[in-house]
Design a binder for these strands. Structure first.
Lengths: 347, 347
DNA sequence: CTGTTAGCGCGTTCAC
DNA sequence: GTGAACGCGCTAACAG
């Protein structure tokens, strides 16, 4: 009662000084105690503890941040959170950050480079200590570097620039192993479908496809998802042409897979009639018939490494920029043809 | 060059005072200018603008927050971001917040009430101006209220307490219209499947199911998803029993739907053999065969209202707590039996 | 319209 | 082991 009266007259939040007064000690003593139970006598500790509880004191992170020049906050800027990969990555990033005493400020740029710049500026104003960035399509690495001068950044999922740490999937390899797997099933005419945006991962996955095809002495075919209608036509043409139609499809990303499935569904082309592998896992991959074979990203590992590396930079490590690429895992289900006679009727 | 020398000796970030000096004006003038182009002469404005550009000045929101007692930050605490609903809601919340000059601090509690308390405390320490909370299962409303004393909160998706604003789906109604639709197709034995957690929305959706069934003079049957194995057995028993088996299923949530689909798939029970409606939309609802009929939430509207209401509270509105519930929309596809003879062979 | 100054809540010297 | 005082960058009062 008394303490409440002493400092809460205006119903304002209790401050460190309120606690100090209530406990009958100096401010810095409370400060030391709050930050880590070091160098405080037992008796005083008890009194401080009591005062904190009585006042409902919560340290003011803003004030601390201003004082020490560190907000203990990480900025996370992603295109969106509407797929398993980003969703899970976000979860891991947030938890890893929290484990280290950091909170996460989340922004999305919707694949829009201009909006991305604004979001980055916003993060700078918030004085985040570091940023996990999934660069938008058509990002100018130079513009980002200029804006972020002085703030540690790690590029996630998509590399950005030689001077910036990046943590990504081994994209070329992903394209390669998927293609090789399909080739292993005896298919001769494979089609790779890529997305609308010019994204580094898509390009390298495509390169993996091309190399694997060339190594096997086959001609790589590819189409690009511009609008759904176009995709629908292109796809049908490839699948239903008279001479040596395509019998196996490699989808280069999550959203492309969704689009392809939609086309097949709309056109009533049974998934069973072709071999299919998608890069990026889907939540419902094993709910389809046949179950979808995918290349799964080691999402948690990627996210963890991103946070790790970012922390190193925040601590001030001046080492050379790193460029980590982790291999994806071929998750074999049925759509590739491994179970049943998927797509082999015409192979 | 000169300005750089004047204030950037130590390569530290430019401050408002640096800008003031460089522009040859007072600090408060810069402050006024930065905050909104009010009351500054043209000449001075130009000089300030130049100085800001030359120094790469970015206002320090921590300092501003400390000074004005407002961080311009919203806390968002959700169970996770792994479904369309929360993902989309998050997007809208972030954009709406941004539109009003707020940034979003994102935390997840994984449906764990204890973790939730820690996260809330963390948000308080960050001095967020308001919180959008999706309360975890088994949340003690009292504990939350005690902790959040003084911080505006709006409960999202799940109500929390009479004294706290809530924005939710009209859950009872959702259960009712789904059930009535199924009944309208002539089904007599319906089964509602609910989730593991004791969640307000699930309970009311179930109530809607029960009432609709009773109004129709039918006996409601229900099972609860505890572990997948149990669900698998219960489901099969209901679907395959000799006397009057269940011919239509109502799933009460996103995760329940996923589980049911998995069971059906594993047991090779064709989705086509039963009528099905799921509350909550799925990204791949129209990729399944037959396409899934669902009750879709007006996600964006809900999110928008949540932010709106939160802003009102932040502005200081002392009005009575509101309890908004928006009706869901029955999105008719095929699995309910509206196209083709889904599930009616045994109805 | 503009400049000066006090202090938001905290951490960090430095004396004691 | 402890307390007093200064300043982090900014805004809100004032005075001019």
């Amino acid at each position: 009662m008394l303490v409440r009266f002493l400092c809460m007259q205006e119903n304002k939040r209790a401050t460190l000084i309120d606690v100090a007064n209530a406990a009958g000690v100096g401010a810095s003593t409370v400060s030391r105690y709050v930050r880590g139970g070091k160098s405080v006598s037992q008796r005083v500790a008890k009194r401080i503890e009591a005062a904190i509880a009585a006042l409902g004191y919560e340290p003011n992170t803003l004030a601390r941040g201003l004082r020490v020049g560190r907000s203990q906050t990480l900025g996370v800027l992603v295109p969106h959170v509407n797929n398993v990969f980003f969703g899970n990555a976000l979860r891991t990033i947030q938890m890893e950050a929290q484990r280290r005493g950091f909170t996460v400020m989340l922004l999305m740029h919707q694949e829009d480079a201009k909006l991305q710049q604004e979001q980055l500026a916003s993060l700078k104003r918030s004085r985040v200590d570091g940023i996990v960035l999934v660069p938008a399509a058509n990002t100018s690495a130079q513009a980002v570097r200029a804006l972020l001068e002085g703030t540690p950044v790690v590029a996630f999922d998509r590399p950005l620039h030689k001077t910036i740490d990046s943590i990504t999937l081994e994209n070329l390899n992903a394209g390669k192993i998927a293609t090789e797997h399909l080739l292993g099933h005896g298919h001769r005419h494979l089609l790779a479908v890529t997305g609308d945006y010019e994204l580094h991962p898509l390009e390298w996955r495509m390169k993996g496809f091309q190399r694997a095809m060339e190594s096997a002495g086959k001609t790589p075919e590819e189409i690009c998802l511009r609008d759904p209608e176009q995709l629908s036509q292109d796809l049908c043409k490839a699948l239903q042409r008279g001479r040596s139609p395509v019998t196996a499809i490699l989808s280069l990303s999550y959203s492309v897979t969704i689009s392809i499935l939609k086309v097949l569904h709309d056109r009533k082309i049974p998934l069973r009639s072709i071999a299919f592998i998608g890069i990026d896992d889907l939540e419902f991959a094993s709910l389809l018939d046949p179950e979808l074979t995918t290349i799964t990203q080691p999402t948690n590992q990627l996210a963890q490494m991103a946070v790790d590396q970012l922390m190193k930079r925040i601590e001030g490590s001046e080492e050379h920029p790193i460029r980590v690429a982790i291999p994806g895992k071929l998750t074999v289900r049925s759509s590739c043809g491994c179970r049943g006679q998927v797509g082999m009727s015409r192979a």
